[in-house]
């Protein structure tokens, strides 16, 4: 057993774990934001279609 091993393991372990968690959280946040952006764009293009249709209906009347 090396003297002081537990301190070295703790220091490096906490450091590595902190950044793993931070990077994973950041990437997840980015992914969710990206998905929401896509979904919103989809909805915008859908709703952009609707007024055209209603406009057609109005014209028919």
């Amino acid at each position: 057993m090396i003297i002081g091993l537990e301190y070295v393991v703790a220091a490096y372990g906490i450091w590595v774990c902190t950044f793993i968690v931070y990077i994973l959280l950041t990437k997840r946040r980015m992914k969710i934001a990206g998905q929401t952006v896509e979904a919103l764009k989809q909805r915008v293009s859908d709703s952009a279609d609707i007024p055209e249709i209603t406009g057609d209906i109005e014209n028919q009347n």
């Binding site: 950041t26 946040r29 980015m30 934001a33 990206g34 929401t36 952006v37 919103l40 764009k41 915008v44």
Partner: peptide
């Protein structure tokens, strides 16, 4: 982190 922030801005704008 900067890229995430830009993505968030894009979302807020939308």
């Amino acid at each position: 982190r900067y890229q995430t922030e830009k993505r968030k801005d894009e979302l807020n704008q939308l």
